[in-house]
Each structure stands twice: as structure tokens, then as C-alpha cells.
Nucleic acid binder design. Structure first.
Lengths: 207, 207
DNA sequence: GGTTTCTCTGGACGGTCGTCCAGAAACCGT
DNA sequence: ACGGTTTCTGGACGACCGTCCAGAGAAACC
């Protein structure tokens, strides 16, 4: 049993876990800035108030740390559209709220999103990430499903495609928009909105 | 002027360029196996009949090598569906041929495809790759466009979405299928076929 | 207040990385 | 057969990597 696991299984988990989260959050920021391939533990430590050693004190190894980063990322973004879904009373309102958030996060959190695609790509090579990445992908799929199924409900229609396919389509649109956003294309967000506006009505149809 | 550039600008380019291509091809294979983050120049050299030094003899640095890998990749896959497009006489024939190739490459060239997504992800962090990646992405977009516009032609309809949006949608579908394929899901290819069959007819409509 | 436990530091360790080069080997026209 | 050029080798270089630890400092407990 590692020191970390031992520590976690004991009583006062709160403070220990809190610091882990704090460190994971800092690591997330550094990773989003540099990318997985170019981020070392020293880069991460330098982004905190602590030294390199603490990372090994709170995490067993690099994989453990990055796994917690990924979990932190998930917590941060999986509920992004839930407010909109909960409060929208008309399909137009829902669509507009969804589009707004979509374009907003594309521009303002582009670094975080590119990290997600980076890590999902890593999971195609490294088994250690596969499980967590797959879990997050599923969470994102459900997030999209909540939006679309609610949209269908509000329009009195039903989704014509499975949750999986719907997510794949939106993910493709978002990823292309992100590429253009990061390349400095000022029209990336606008074009993403336009694309979704075009696609959205075709995904649902009268039951 | 570097030694490599000097060599290239002279007369007998053929043999030099041929070896560069040979090395790039070997590098491509190694990268597809290990991924960008875990592939060193020594791994690549070990996959050839030569030593580490030759890599620096034929390429100025790692970026130069990988750039040529990416170009090699492009040459290898951008014409994948052109035969089908050229020979298909009916929409059904085209759709079936497209689906066949799509599922085939998903299974048999999954390593190469995951490398593409890996490198495209890298281009979100590293400027040096951005230009080449964007160019290949455009080539792939046009590849998809040739398929879809021909499909529309054969059905007497017209594409309802722009080339860019169409590519983003297919790319999303393919990437999700690839993730499942690499995770060992035996239904990945079948499900991709099913998804495309569902989506394809919705993308074109009577002019 | 003394002692145990938790937290953190700063540096060391072996290993791998990209880069570079002196010189051997192969190839060339003459 | 020979001198010049191209091609290739094998190893060296400094930098950076993840990991680990001895011990300093802080906190908690008796």
C-alpha cells in the first residue's frame, strides 16, 4: 500500500484531499498552457506555491496526478449547459442559450478544451488514461443528450439519432471550431454558431 | 543555409529525397505505434536499417522529420475514396463503397489514424505543426466533399451544408468510432456504418 | 512542553532526450 | 588505383525527465 493510499484510507481525508484538488487544479492550468507532451512535473510545481517534492507526496506518480487533473476538468465542464436546460421555456430560448454558452466556452476556455482533445488522443496510446477518458466522454455525451432531448421536448418532436451519434456530431463541429479559434480565426465562434443553427433542427423530427 | 537545404537545392535530388521519404515512412510507422509524446528519435532509427545519426543527416531536426511524416501521411490517405467516387454509377453503389472503405480503414489503419488525431492535437499547442496540419485537414475536407457532392449528384439533390461543416460531422463520427475501436469494442466499425447510413441521406436534399 | 505525526523542502539519482561531430565506410568520376 | 564527395556510424554533450529521500519545519496531541 502506498503512502498516499494509506493516507487516504485514514480518517482526516478532508485536508489531504483538498490539497490534492488544489494541486490538480494548478496542474490542469499548466497542462492547458503547454500540452501533455511538453509539461513536466517541474512546470506544474512552479505554478503552485510548493516545491516539486509535494507532488510526489500527494500523488503516487505522474499518471495519478494527470488522472486527477482529468477528473477536475470533468467536474468543471460537464454541467455547463444544465442551467440553460433547466430554465429555458421555449426551443428558441434553449437554442440561444446553448449557442451562447458554446461560443463563449470556445473562446474563453480554448486552452482547457485543447487539453481535453490532447488527453483523449493520449488515451488512444496509453492504457492508463483510457478508462477515465472514456468515462468523461460518456459524461459529455450525456450532457449533449440533455440539451438535445430537452430541445426535442420543447419542440414536440423526438431526437432522430442516438445519444452517441449526436455527441460525435457536435464534438466534430466543436473540435473544428476550436482548431480555427486557436489558429487565430476570428470567425471561429460565429461560424460554429451558424453551423449548429443549421444542424440542430435536422436532428429532431415529429414523433 | 543548413546542410540539408543546401543538399536539396543542388542537382541530384532524387536519391536524397528518396531516402528522406523512406525514413519518413519508417518514422510514421513508429509514431503510429507509440504516439508523439513517447516516440524518440532513437525509437525511429531502430525501426530502420540505419543509425541515429542519419536522421540528423537527412533532417535538420525533429520538427523537420515529423513534418515530413505528416506529409507522407497525407499522400497515403487523401485519395482513399477517389476510386469509389470515380467508378460508382448509383448512389447506393457510392454509399456502399464509401462505407466499406471507411470501416476498413478504421479497423486496419487505426494506428495511423490515432497518430493523425495526436498530431492535430499537438498543432493546437505547437505553432510549428499548425500550418501543415491545417493543410492536411483541408485536404481531408475536400476528400469528404468529393464523396458527398458526388452522392448528391447521383441522387439528383444538393448538399445542404458547407464543405467545412460536412467534414466536421464526419470527422466527429470517425473519431468516436476510432476511440471505440482502439478500446477493443468489436462493434465500432459496424456502428460507424450504421451511423453514417442514418446521417448520409439527411445531408442532401432536392435542389 | 515535549513528542509524535504531518507537511514540505531541496537536492540527488539514473535514465532518456535532441543535437552534434570526428572519422570510418561506401561511392564516385577520372 | 586514387582523391574527393557523399553517406553513415557510434558515441559524446548538456539538458531535462520522473522518482525518491533525508531531514527541516509546522501542527497536533498527550
Amino acid at each position: 500500500m502506498t503512502a498516499v493510499a494509506e493516507r487516504l484510507s485514514r480518517g482526516a481525508v478532508d485536508k489531504f484531499a483538498a490539497r490534492r484538488t488544489e494541486l490538480a487544479r494548478a496542474a490542469l492550468q499548466t497542462l492547458a498552457e503547454l500540452g501533455y507532451a511538453r509539461t513536466g512535473l517541474r512546470d506544474i510545481a512552479q505554478n503552485t506555491d510548493f516545491s516539486l517534492g509535494v507532488l510526489h507526496y500527494y500523488f503516487t506518480d505522474k499518471v495519478d496526478l494527470i488522472t486527477h487533473c482529468v477528473r477536475e476538468y470533468k467536474a468543471q465542464c460537464v454541467t455547463r449547459y444544465d442551467d440553460v436546460v433547466a430554465t429555458a421555456g421555449t426551443p428558441e430560448e434553449l437554442a440561444e442559450g446553448f449557442l451562447q454558452k458554446l461560443a463563449e466556452t470556445l473562446v474563453e476556455e480554448s486552452d482547457l478544451h485543447r487539453l481535453w482533445y490532447d488527453l483523449r488522443g493520449q488515451s488512444m496510446f496509453e492504457d492508463s488514461f483510457r478508462k477515465d477518458v472514456a468515462e468523461i466522454d460518456l459524461s459529455l455525451e450525456r450532457m449533449i443528450w440533455r440539451v438535445i432531448s430537452r430541445y426535442a421536448e420543447l419542440t414536440g418532436t423526438e431526437p432522430q439519432l442516438s445519444s452517441r451519434v449526436l455527441y460525435a456530431l457536435f464534438d466534430g463541429l466543436f473540435q473544428q471550431a476550436l482548431l480555427r479559434q486557436l489558429a487565430g480565426d476570428p470567425a471561429a465562434a460565429t461560424d460554429l454558431r451558424a453551423a449548429v443553427v443549421q444542424v440542430l433542427p435536422q436532428l429532431v423530427r415529429a414523433a
